[in-house]
Design a protein around this nucleic acid. Structure first.
Length: 401
RNA sequence: GGGUAGGUGGCGGAGUGGUCAAUCGCAGCUGACUGUAAAUCAGCCGACUUCGGUCUUCGGGGGUUCGAAUCCCUCCCUGCCCA
């Protein structure tokens, strides 16, 4: 047996993974060199792929590199139904147009991680839209109401007196039927998907197939420590520009460093272990570990050069508080402009009142000089000077006729 | 079908005729501090303003009143209980 392959497989089945069902079986099949069909359900409810979702995609990449067939199920049908997994409220149904545009951006972003030429993909509207009432009834008969109401997120809402629609209950059936249609060997997803993915096993058995194995990935916390989710606005998106991405990772709590290293990077595990140990022994400053982490993550999505630049930018602007060399330009037509207006137009405030507030509160400085007069006017003597708004906003002012 | 409770700012949730642009918590913003865009602390947190004020908001529409988120009518939506 190839020792190296076995090591790789072990890593696939453990790194950032919370649970594998059925582990023995899956490991055996992977070792045997079978080409497995690995399913990922994509829910085009939001177009941005964030680090949390990328955990799963990275795992798929590992599998793809071993020669397995990745199969995307695009939930264009289910997206219009709404999933309940780990949601505290009902998800809205989405229009066809939104789903389509989300999908396009999703696939483009997924291409940053996976070789999309080798990915097979299907839309579940292909088959779900054709099912008849009697077929749906047959499938619905596989499950009982008790199983559904026992799910934590459903039960919580039920006891809290929130509405749970019948429509939502159908969701796992659909996801499970997807597995049947593509004859999935393995399905991958976040821990929150456990129930839905397990439903796939039951469905497959019902239709005379071997039940799929399951890899459940760890869910990672967002920059505010809560679960990373688009609806919380605490995500690091893989399309974030290098500086933003770097900064967001730097703002993550210290206790998440190791978890991020494991789930969001492919830094060798023995190195991660070393970093953890050195931090525990206080030989390594968590800040430095985080600098490395941010660098690794940015490198994954933007490449080595950009990663190095982002690191330098961060150190200069936040640690040394320098004004960045490449602040975005803002062109002013004419000879002068009101400061508040300038802040608004350069998108550093959401309204004039907001801009005024920032000035009053001492958040605005021009050419290293704090300005607190709300009525200030910027004249063209300040051409090419840099305006700083808050901690992150920089604008180089350019006057033009 | 019967009963009942509701719909308030990004979210949660007070307020039940004037002192309400509306308590409070979360999110957000600014500052101080810090290795950090973390934590903590302080302030801010509808829009516009010549900083005196002005305008638009409490599910939609209509009404009563000097005056309504608060009272009445009507429409729409939702929860819960019973069938």
């Amino acid at each position: 047996m190839d020792k190296n392959l076995e090591k790789q497989i072990d890593e696939i089945l453990t790194r950032g993974v919370t649970e594998v069902i059925d582990k023995e079986n899956l490991k055996k099949r992977l070792l045997a060199g079978e080409k497995l069909r690995v399913k990922l359900g994509i829910d085009p409810t939001s177009s941005n792929i964030h680090l949390g979702r990328a955990v799963t995609l990275l795992k798929l990449r590992d599998l793809q590199q071993l020669g397995h067939q990745i199969v995307f199920i695009i939930g264009d049908f289910t997206a219009q139904i709404g999933d309940t997994s780990d949601k505290e409220s009902e998800r809205p149904m989405l229009s066809k147009e939104t789903v389509e545009s989300n999908l396009r951006t999703y696939l483009q972003q997924a291409g940053k991680i996976l070789d999309m030429n080798k990915v097979e993909s299907h839309r579940n509207s292909e088959w779900l839209g054709k099912l008849t009432y009697s077929e749906i009834s047959e499938q619905a008969n596989i499950f009982s109401l008790a199983e559904f109401s026992a799910r934590e997120n459903i039960r919580k809402r039920l006891t809290a007196g929130k509405r749970v629609s019948l429509r939502e209950v159908l969701y796992p059936l659909m996801q499970g039927y997807d597995s049947v249609m593509i004859k999935a060997d393995v399905e991958i997803g976040g821990t929150d998907q456990k129930f839905n993915i397990l439903a796939g096993r039951e469905m497959q058995k019902h239709f005379g197939q071997k039940p799929q194995d399951i890899i459940l990935n760890e869910l990672i916390e967002g920059i505010d420590g809560r679960k990373m989710s688009s609806s919380w606005g605490n995500t690091v998106n893989i399309t974030d520009d290098p500086n933003t991405m770097f900064g967001k990772v730097m703002s993550v709590g210290d206790d998440l460093i190791v978890k991020y290293f494991i789930s969001c990077t492919r830094v060798p595990l023995d190195e991660v272990e070393k970093i953890k140990k050195e931090m525990d022994d206080e030989k390594l400053n968590p800040r430095d570990a985080k600098l490395r982490l941010a660098g690794e993550i940015v490198k994954l999505y933007h490449g080595e050069t950009e990663s190095r630049k982002a690191r330098q930018y961060f150190i200069n602007t936040f640690s040394k508080k320098e004004i960045p060399a490449e602040a975005p330009k803002f062109v002013v037509k004419g000879d002068s402009i009101k400061l508040a207006q300038l802040i608004l137009e350069s998108k550093n405030a959401k309204s004039l009142s907001d801009a005024r507030r920032k000035i009053e509160q001492g958040g605005v400085s021009l050419d290293d000089e704090k300005i607190t007069d709300v009525q200030s006017v910027v004249t063209k003597e300040k051409d090419q000077k840099v305006l700083k708004i808050g901690k992150m906003g920089f604008v180089r002012i350019k006057f033009e006729k």
